[in-house]
Computed example of a mutant assay.
Amino acid sequence: MRARSIGAAAATGLALVAARDLVQKKHALLRNFPLVGHARYVLETIGPELRQYIVTSNDEERPFSRDQRSWIYASAKGENNYFGFGTDNDIEHIQGHAYVKQRTFAGVLPDLSDPQAALPSAKVLGGPRGRAKSFRPASVINISAMSLGSLSGAAVTALNKGAALAGTMQNTGEGGLSPYHLNGGDLVFQIGTSYFGCRNEDGTFNLDKLKSVVAGAPVKAIEIKLSQGAKPGLGGMLPGVKVTDEIAGIRDIPAGKDCVSPSRHTAFHDVNSMLDFVELLATETGLPVGIKSAVGEMDFWEELATLMERGERGVDFVTVDGGEGGTGAAPLVFADSVSLPFRMGFSRVYGVFAERDLTDDITFIGSGKLGLPENAVVAFALGVDMINVGREAMLSIG
């Protein structure tokens, strides 16, 4: 009797679903194939998992393949990250594949007795322009900009503690400096278009607030975010449901309301006024000041290098983000088609400064999947002094 009741209830439920499929006007598939049409949506939902475990090879998935994820996970856990039986890549025919040419006899070998020892930067950040708080970074590998709000407090804490252990720097992201950033790791404070943590009520920049923020934390440098690889010149939004009282207090914004980041800065409007802004921040804080940008049209870089050639004003570092870099969310056309990939974009930017003999005056930082060794090797060969890693760091903390 009970089984009959359950069967009747199930049949009634299926009949109601079928009736709804026939009258709804959103999905033509369900109107033509009531009930069974749902199977397609189920398969589409689990399609990535099916391809991951059944269909794709170890190197087909994007943005990170199974081999790349395995290497990151093993490295993060201190486990064996070696691969046996040679490569499974078709290295003779892969377009853009990087070949590292080893030397038979090398010069003086570095001391590798301590596998945790950081590799210091070859340049003094802010040194060429005589910044009061110029310094030589302890590591050429640092943590890229990721804000509290896009990451949880626990994630930011884990990254900062990891930065302290590794002797690297963590970029705060444009979401401001939070208590979770204060767990021993050095910081790069990022200023975005909304000036979170250093803004007035109307969203304009507040210098006094910036000076207060950097004075009370281990901030080693300031980065002005112009754009990033997967979201150049687009701005952004943090939905109101994510704007908690805590995040609102850190960002100086109302709690519970959508938080919109404009697509452009209000503190400056062109290259000339941007350099004035850079010099203002450097003079008032003593810190090295740089910019972060994806690469599109080259007029900006040409003008920046031309003005810096005069020697009066200039940025201390340039962070070039490739179009393959990550972001919280962006329209598909931006993620896929807007801004140059790292190797192409950085080569063009570096060439602009090299033509004017300015490369020794700037620290070049690269980002965009450069946490993978083969990509990092190419970046350093192209002229990068340091790299920032983002998604690789996120994968390492789960």
Rank of each mutant, 00 (worst) to 15 (best):
Q95H: 12
R40Q: 09
V36H: 04
G184T: 02
I397Q: 03
I46D: 03
N388P: 01
A217N: 05
F189D: 01
A230L: 14
R2W: 03
K123W: 02
A166T: 14
G149C: 08
G390W: 06
G47Y: 14
G256Y: 08
E324F: 06
K26W: 07
S194G: 13
A248V: 13
V349N: 09
A305H: 09
E324R: 10
D202Y: 04
A138T: 15
V278R: 05
L125P: 05
V243Q: 12
K369H: 06
D88V: 14
F353L: 13
S139C: 07
S367F: 01
E49L: 14
M1P: 10
D59H: 13
D90E: 11
T157F: 03
A305M: 10
M308T: 05
V352T: 14
T266H: 04
A154G: 02
R199N: 14
A122S: 15
V42E: 04
G311I: 04
E61F: 07
A215R: 07
I387T: 11
P128E: 01
P137V: 06
G390V: 07
A393W: 02
A39Q: 10
G322E: 08
A294G: 10
T172V: 12
S227P: 06
N81P: 15
I253D: 03
W301R: 09
T266V: 07
L30P: 02
R391K: 11
K77H: 14
V271I: 07
H93P: 00
G322W: 08
N171Y: 00
